[in-house]
């Protein structure tokens, strides 16, 4: 292997579908062994980017490497050392759990196949259900099976496309423990998600909107970059306030976090002015907070949302 530093290192990645630009000139460099979160609203180009990285879509422009291989011309090599978990469950529902694993092991030409499959089934805790059809599994189990199957060949890079969509919280937590364990073994992970708590578990985040990267960095960097000021309003009357605050000068967006209303904007004085009439209300407690990642993402989505439709 070469002594490359970045497992993924691509520049100017671009993809058009007809007239539409799905991915627009983006750069991503993920150092080996890190877990990166890939965020952005639906249709922003996450899946398209991941597919280009593992050679499932031809990029219209861009250059760079995955695992040291040229991502445009050496996709066969990249595929061998990459595990790709598709957004939609893509193993064979009319094959049993065991048959799916067996097929994957055989396709990758893995040695001692029977032992490996047996071991994987044990690790998954699916030994007793190994002959059940994959299509009969629940969402959480399907996702575990998919992860086990796409890591069967010990890849160096994992590309996970919304792996936890529609999965219960406990299963999500277990899933992330597994990812951190794999990362501890030196595997590089790029995972797309819509969940804030998952984003916060990543070393770095890339936020993409309509094909453009609009924010990147660690959680605190992204929050700092946003330049956002956020006030909180708690109390019985807070519910009625949301509508009245929306649209006032300086108020960029208003969102509830539980029972607490977050009012965010860029200009502190304008925000203070907007809130001034309610300071006196004894039923309301007004304070200030560091914007959460979710505040920042809502803001990013609002800011870029209308621009490119």
């Amino acid at each position: 292997m070469s002594t490359h530093q970045n497992a993924i290192d691509v520049r100017g990645l671009t993809k058009h579908f007809g007239k539409k630009t799905a991915v627009n000139n983006i750069d991503i460099a993920v150092p080996e062994g890190q877990v990166w979160g890939f965020l952005g609203p639906n249709g922003s180009g996450k899946t398209t980017t991941i597919r280009m990285l593992c050679g499932l879509l031809n990029a219209d422009a861009g250059e760079g490497t995955c695992l040291g291989y040229d991502f445009r011309s050496q996709s066969e090599q990249i595929k061998r050392e990459t595990g790709y978990m598709t957004q939609r469950f893509s193993f064979w529902e009319d094959l049993s759990i065991r048959e799916n694993l067996d097929f994957v092991a055989e396709v990758y030409g893995l040695p001692r196949r029977r032992a490996l499959v047996k071991q994987t089934l044990e690790k998954l805790g699916l030994e007793s259900r190994q002959n059940q059809l994959a299509g009969e599994l629940s969402g959480g189990w399907k996702q575990r099976l998919a992860l086990a199957a796409c890591t069967l060949h010990s890849p160096k890079l994992l590309l996970l496309d919304e792996p936890t969509a529609g999965v219960d919280p406990k299963a999500r937590r277990d899933f992330w423990d597994e990812i951190h364990m794999l990362s501890g073994q030196g595997i590089t992970v790029l995972v797309s998600t819509h969940y804030m708590d998952e984003a916060e578990r990543c070393d770095r985040i890339v936020y993409i909107s309509y094909g453009d990267i609009v924010a990147r960095g660690t959680v605190s960097e992204i929050i700092a970059q946003s330049g956002l000021v956020t006030f909180t309003i708690a109390g019985d009357d807070a519910r009625q306030l949301a509508g009245r605050l929306r649209g006032l000068p300086g108020v960029v967006f208003v969102a509830f976090f539980g029972a607490v209303l977050h009012v965010s904007g860029y200009d502190r004085t304008l925000l203070e002015k907007a809130l001034a009439p309610y300071r006196a209300d004894p039923g309301l407690t007004i304070g200030e907070t560091t914007p959460s990642l979710e505040d920042v993402f809502i803001q990013l989505q609002e800011k870029t949302g209308g621009a490119n439709v």
């Binding site: 597919r51 593992c54 499932l56 066969e76 595929k79 061998r80 990459t82 790709y84 598709t86 939609r88 469950f89 893509s90 193993f91 064979w92 529902e93 994957v104 396709v107 990758y108």
Partner: peptide
Amino acid sequence: ERGTYENLLAMPT
């Protein structure tokens, strides 16, 4: 149609 094609392509077949 079943979405398994993507998986098949992602493997070294």
